[in-house]
């Protein structure tokens, strides 16, 4: 009798245990459940929507370790019909761990609009770069929607010993004129006016945007503070996103080569 009672209790423990998640390492770059190629898949669903000459973007950044606030944002964004897509400007995770990316995805997967992730410095910790690549895609990539080219790129200079971040050659190439592109919007995590941007590249970077007549605005995260200004005294408007602890986001409308901003609380 005693045997069977204990055995049952033990079996129960084992069974409840097995249904749990087996983990090889907190630093593994993917698992059976982790999503793959999100940026590419979201682009496919974005291209299915019909452009209407106005692009409406929910612009957010720095979801790192603010999981309690994610669902609030998702509910609010889902209630705004005109949003075309969501841009998440880096620091998706805090420690570069797969589980963190999965928590963010758990909420973002409930968005009824496409979303795009940009890599942040925290996302590059430990195996984070591999996690990001597998879950979202390349660190530098671009897409065209409604004749605006969005250039998502890696500006997390401090994370690299070598000096090629941001990759200006790549950026220059992306900013070349093309018949299907009327304007450019650059999106990255660390803004060029921040200390974590490679100081040797600040000038060439700002100059490249300034000299291009079609850049509408440069969007960034990292600073956990919304800013909207012209830091280099030129014609390029730099916008930084709210972080998720601030429970606000920017609604950006792009129409006729102009960017209009609304601040939405959630």
């Amino acid at each position: 009798m005693k045997f069977s009672k204990y055995t049952l209790a033990f079996l129960f423990l084992v069974l409840t245990g097995c249904s749990n998640q087996l983990e090889f390492s907190p630093n593994q770059s993917f698992d059976e459940d982790s999503p793959k190629d999100l940026n590419r898949k979201n682009l496919m669903s974005l291209t299915r929507s019909i452009p209407d000459d106005t692009i409406v973007i929910a612009f957010v950044g720095d979801s790192q370790r603010f999981y309690d606030n994610l669902d609030g944002f998702v509910r609010k964004a889902n209630s705004i019909e005109e949003i075309d897509f969501v841009l998440l400007a880096g620091d998706i995770s805090d420690f570069g761990l797969l589980q963190e990316f999965e928590w963010v995805y758990e909420s973002f997967s409930k968005l009824n609009k496409p979303f795009f992730g940009v890599v942040g410095n925290h996302d590059l910790q430990a195996q984070g770069e591999e996690v990001f690549r597998k879950m979202f895609g390349e660190l530098n990539e671009s897409f065209v929607y409604d004749s605006v080219k969005f250039i998502l790129h890696n500006t997390n200079s401090r994370e690299y010993l070598e000096k090629n971040v941001p990759d200006l050659e790549w950026l220059e190439n992306e900013l070349k004129p093309s018949p299907d592109v009327k304007h450019f919007v650059t999106v990255s995590h660390v803004p060029p006016f921040d200390n974590d941007f490679n100081p040797d590249l600040v000038d060439p970077y700002a100059t490249m945007l300034r000299d291009n007549q079609r850049v509408l605005t440069s969007l960034h995260g990292h600073v956990h503070q919304h800013r909207d200004f012209f830091p280099f005294g030129d014609n390029i408007r730099y916008l930084t996103s709210y972080s998720f602890d601030q429970r606000s986001f920017l609604l950006l409308k792009i129409a006729n080569g102009e960017v209009f901003k609304t601040i939405i609380d959630y």
Binding site: G17, C18, L22, E23, P26, R65, Y67, Q99, E100, W103
Partner: peptide, 29 residues
Amino acid sequence: IEFNTNDLYVVSLAQNYKSINFFDIVKSG
């Protein structure tokens, strides 16, 4: 059968107990 959690998971849960399921931070082997 072994269950474990680590320091960074605990920190994440402690600050987000409303949205993170406790069993998310328990890993098995």
